[in-house]
Design a protein around this nucleic acid. Structure first.
Lengths: 143, 143
DNA sequence: TATAATTAAATTGTACTCAATCGAATTGAG
DNA sequence: CTCAATTCGATTGAGTACAATTTAATTATA
């Protein structure tokens, strides 16, 4: 009767734990290539957005990266100090902070091309497995 | 000629970014259930290990959780303050710190059963998709 | 049109995360 | 045996994460 099944509390039966462990494992691998660019991983994915859109506000950047202002405010100040972005208030709505990539930030893009190159094969997944993983992850994120 | 393909630097083409975003999204969902137990997510997965093995040293715990002493030392001190574990040096090798679950920590297991229950269906993956994801993630971790 | 409600960032406080370094204990080569 | 190398955990410092709160600006409503 009062037998309790604790299997649901086993590490090996979790879905979040390997997600969490995997993301940290890969981010650790990024570290040695990104430090050549003087970027952290979070700064790197933020730069990916700037390379695409050139200009964006904090809220919209946060919704793309799934990060809030508590994380982004210091991160964007740091990118500004490095000279990769410029921050300024919107004239139309003073609450909104616009962040725009600088020429220096744009120039970094060429250098950054070496990163995916070096990270190639960082996981031993086949192309098909990587596609499957990608789809499953975005299915989770789409909720 | 000198056309460069920057697609490899697009956020949508990354594998690590959705891993990172997914794990944080799910951990955020855990938060409201775990705070009823006065545990953070990292403390929760550490407790999962203690519920299984009762006693373990820091290095072995770190290899199971993919975390190092810089993360675990303060985390274990915090769990000790809450009364869930006891920390002491090994008599055989004074370098080794053993961490053992207390009766209070064992009692927490029953309460914790509600967490996977509440998290059930936190992702809308089918059972098959969840199994596939699990396999792919452990393939990455096994490198 | 006052003012209440909402919104956007910034701030605060707690807790990771991890590279790098340190100090103490143990082990191993000569 | 002995000193150098290794190992274990703790510490340090920089950078996130994020819930909760605050401040300032804007919008909506009575």
């Amino acid at each position: 009767m009062s037998e309790q099944n604790f299997d649901v509390l086993k590490l090996e039966n979790q879905i979040c734990f390997p997600l969490y462990a995997c993301s940290r494992q890969i981010i650790r691998k990024y570290h040695k290539y990104l430090e050549e660019l003087n970027l952290t991983y979070t700064q790197y994915i933020a730069m990916m957005v700037f390379w695409e859109v050139k200009k964006i506000n904090v809220k919209e950047l946060g919704s793309r990266l799934y990060l809030d202002s508590g994380t982004l405010t210091p991160l964007l100040k740091s990118l500004e100090e490095k000279g990769y972005v410029r921050r300024y208030r919107s004239k139309e709505d003073e609450r909104v902070l616009l962040v725009e990539i600088t020429s220096s930030g744009k120039a970094l893009r060429e250098q950054a091309l070496s990163v995916p190159e070096k990270m190639k094969g960082c996981t031993k997944l086949t192309k098909e497995e990587a596609v499957t993983l990608h789809q499953l992850l975005y299915k989770i994120l789409s909720e």
